[in-house]
Design a protein around this nucleic acid. Structure first.
Length: 749
DNA sequence: ATACATACC
DNA sequence: TACTGGTATGTAT
């Protein structure tokens, strides 16, 4: 084979195997040396062989694409260019620079937590994970090329002194909760992306912040006294964890809160965005002794890129002007953009595209070579556009569990493992009170080849037996297909999806508690009508919770009346706590009328915000409803309260904007809470009614929950889930009759 | 609806 | 010795 070809292939493959210097902390290391070690350590392994295979598949895709490109005529290109420009103009018109979006990201999160809790590790290269796989590494280790998603044994080759600490998820979760409490102070509707990362919309906070007194912007250091002045300065700039020269070997064991620093040990933060974000990061560091980085930008896509810019322990603000955005985008590597991964990068590179400006220059071509969703995304990226509305965390769509193990070839062992996975999955499903219709089995053989096999049932299931009945069938089929060769597995997984609550919808938020219980639609006969679940109670209950919970996506705060767009009950609780403390502060020196005017002010502000939010959200939903019109429709209801705000805010356009269901004369309002038609054309009156309705409902429902306080955690509320597992479902008969394989029977119970 | 691939942390 | 696990989404059939 010709030299040139061989070498380009190798280089291409490197992009798959080799280290990504994409991430922070990788500057000025010996790339070639590192890559050589990685390749040498991997070479010849099954994993490596499979990666080679996959890389060749990508190469084929690229070849196909290049052929397609060669067939494109000037005329096609011109037409495409016109089309692209049309879309681009529309996108440009929708550009919204009015929001302030922040992306926060903890620095080397897991590693930083472990270092904090074990000072021994502070000056050593370390990583969190196992010999098989690392989750993250500290900055020390990154100098050696050790990074997340790298197997530990390779990392050890790169850095023999590397210390590998096992994962301790409970600890990370606890820290995560701490930082989320702080996030909620800046945006109660923040969206967590993972334990250590979140998007926040700072716009509302900043508006309020302008009127805050200094005292509200003053925050204290957690440590005091024994530190010298220089040490204090250092602590301001350096992470106590990420850098070895941080002051004081181990901080005095004071609680993260409640310890007042003496006068002087505080900092007053300004009212600008940068100050607000700096303040948030400061509070995170004081509370957790861990540092965070942040990006500030007019949309989510940009904010995410920005948060990487001054990592670790830094922040970067991209000004909200079109010019600044386009400047920023210009030389930005496409790979930095969320959603463009290894493969997309490689395909784009093949077209000579490596930066976002290239992307913009090649849009006509891209529109002919990629799917509509793909090129639309590329176009948005090239214009520096992204979402300006942070959606609440969506309900989960699937739940799965999978495990990697030493080769497993015996049928009985595979079946018992499968059952084990189903047990784990069923347990998790119970915790969230979910039921799903589609069961998917995932298999990975010792050659790293992955297969998935799915089956959709007429009814949603959740119990071990139900899930296993399906998973086992799928597994058996695979075993049979392979026989007489055994399946030589290295991984098995079971996933369940198509949750009943998402599909069988009655789009009416009738009961908030119903939602809080997170009861889901239930279809009490199991898979193939094998056995009937006993008990009417169960059915009634399930039915009730169906109508109760379907499609509710916001919770209404009983204190401030505002809709809190979250399904995270911790967030909701935090919001209520805040409201209660605000209210008590405010009513301390005032009377009821005082409170009323406060809330009026609040409402006005809220309504203005609602208009903007709604506008942005509409865009998001239009996209969705294209794909799934039903979902788009169902969201009409949940928006109706806000829609009213919109109408109220802008009376003149109200009738033209909002298609009214009846009455050509004028708007007739139906209360989204009580479902009764309100005989009024006065929006203020109608809004007042809705507020009352919402409030009454919440209070009523909360009051009815006599048991165990107001426990908002669905997991802990056993009212519905508890019953579900009590009926000891008899072992299914179908299962027993399954047939020839005797060894299988023992796995059925 | 199913299978597979890509992406993110 | 050893290359994860959980979730979402896009693409093709």
């Amino acid at each position: 084979m010709e030299n040139g070809v061989a070498s380009t292939k190798e280089e291409g493959f490197l992009s798959r195997m080799a280290l990504n210097d994409n991430k922070a902390g990788m500057e000025g290391l010996d790339r070639d040396k590192i890559n050589k070690i990685i390749m040498e350590t991997s070479k010849g392994s099954k994993f490596y062989e499979n990666e080679l295979k996959r890389d060749q598949q990508v190469n084929q895709r690229i070849t196909k694409m290049m052929l397609q490109k060669a067939r494109i005529t000037e005329q096609q290109l011109k037409k495409a260019q016109a089309q692209v420009e049309k879309v681009a103009t529309a996108l440009e018109k929708s550009r919204d620079l009015s929001r302030v979006i922040v992306h926060v990201d903890m620095d080397a999160f897991y590693a930083a937590v472990e270092m904090r809790d074990c000072p021994e590790l502070k000056d050593k290269p370390m990583a969190v994970g196992s010999m098989s796989m690392l989750s993250t590494s500290n900055y020390h280790a990154r100098k050696y090329g050790v990074r997340a998603a790298m197997p530990g044994f390779i990392a050890k080759k790169l850095c023999p002194s590397l210390v590998i600490v096992p994962l301790n998820f409970d600890k990370y979760r606890a820290v995560s909760n701490e930082i989320r409490e702080i996030f909620a102070d800046y945006d109660p509707n923040f969206q967590p992306l993972s334990l250590d990362e979140a998007y926040l919309d700072f716009t509302d906070h900043l508006e309020q912040r302008q009127h805050w007194p200094e005292s509200a912007r003053t925050h204290h250091f957690r440590k005091k006294a024994e530190l010298s002045q220089e040490a204090m300065t250092e602590i301001r700039e350096l992470s106590p964890v990420l850098f070895e020269d941080s002051p004081g070997s181990s901080p005095s064991p004071v609680g993260p809160e409640g310890v007042r620093a003496p006068a002087g040990d505080f900092e007053v933060f300004g009212t600008s965005v940068e100050e607000a974000v700096r303040e948030m990061r400061f509070r995170i560091e004081q509370k957790t002794m861990l540092t965070a980085s942040a990006g500030i930008a007019p949309n989510m896509m940009l904010a995410k890129v920005c948060s990487d810019k001054n990592k670790p322990n830094g922040q970067y603000r991209l000004p909200s002007t079109r010019e600044a955005v386009m400047d920023f985008i210009h030389n930005l590597p496409v790979r930095k953009v969320c959603g463009i991964g290894k493969v997309s990068e490689k395909m784009l590179n093949a077209l000579g595209i490596s930066t976002c400006s290239h992307l913009g220059q090649q849009m006509a071509l891209l529109s002919l070579l990629f799917s509509e969703t793909a090129w639309h995304h590329f176009l948005e990226v090239s214009l520096g556009l992204g979402s300006t509305y942070i959606p609440r965390h969506e309900e989960r769509k699937s739940m799965s569990t999978e495990r990697t193990f030493k080769e497993l070839s015996k049928v009985e062992e595979q079946l018992s493992l499968c059952r084990e996975l189903c047990e784990d999955l069923a347990e998790d499903m119970k915790k969230e009170g979910l039921k799903g219709k589609t069961v998917t089995l995932k298999l990975k053989n010792v050659n790293f080849e992955v297969k998935t096999r799915a089956m959709t049932l007429p009814c949603a299931v959740a119990t071990v037996d139900e899930i296993f009945a399906v998973a086992k069938d799928l597994l058996k089929t695979e075993i049979e297909n392979e026989s007489p060769q055994p399946l030589r597995l290295r991984l098995m997984g079971v996933r369940i999806s198509a949750f009943a609550s998402l599909d069988d919808k009655k789009p009416l938020q009738k009961s908030i508690i119903g939602f809080l219980q997170s009861g889901k639609t239930d279809c009490s006969s199991s898979s193939q009508g094998m056995h009937q679940k006993p008990g009417n109670e169960l059915q009634l209950e399930a039915h009730a919770s169906t109508s109760a919970c379907a499609e509710s996506e916001t919770l209404t705060c009983p204190v401030c009346f505002r809709k809190v767009e979250t399904t995270d009950l911790n967030v909701f609780n935090t919001h209520i706590d805040q409201c209660l403390s605000n209210a008590s502060q405010k009513t301390n020196n005032g009377t009821e009328s005082d409170t009323e005017s406060e809330s009026d002010l609040k409402k006005d502000r809220e309504e203005r915000a609602a208009v903007n939010k709604l506008r942005r959200r509409h865009e998001a939903q239009e996209k969705k409803s294209k794909v799934n019109p039903q979902k788009g429709q169902s969201s009409v209801k949940k928006d109706s309260v806000q829609k009213v705000s919109l109408i109220k805010d802008d009376n003149k356009t109200a009738t033209s904007q909002e298609p009214q269901p009846s009455n050509s004369k004028g708007p007739v309002f139906v209360c989204p809470v009580c479902q009764l038609t309100q005989e009024t054309h006065d929006l203020a009156v109608f809004n007042h009614h809705v507020d009352l309705c919402l409030n009454q409902e919440v209070l009523h429902e909360l009051g009815r929950q006599t048991s165990s306080s107001i426990n908002l955690s669905p997991a802990k509320n056993s009212k519905s889930t508890g019953k579900r597992d009590t009926p000891s479902s008899p072992p299914s008969k179908k299962v027993k009759s399954l047939g020839p394989c005797n060894t299988i029977d023992k796995f059925f119970r």
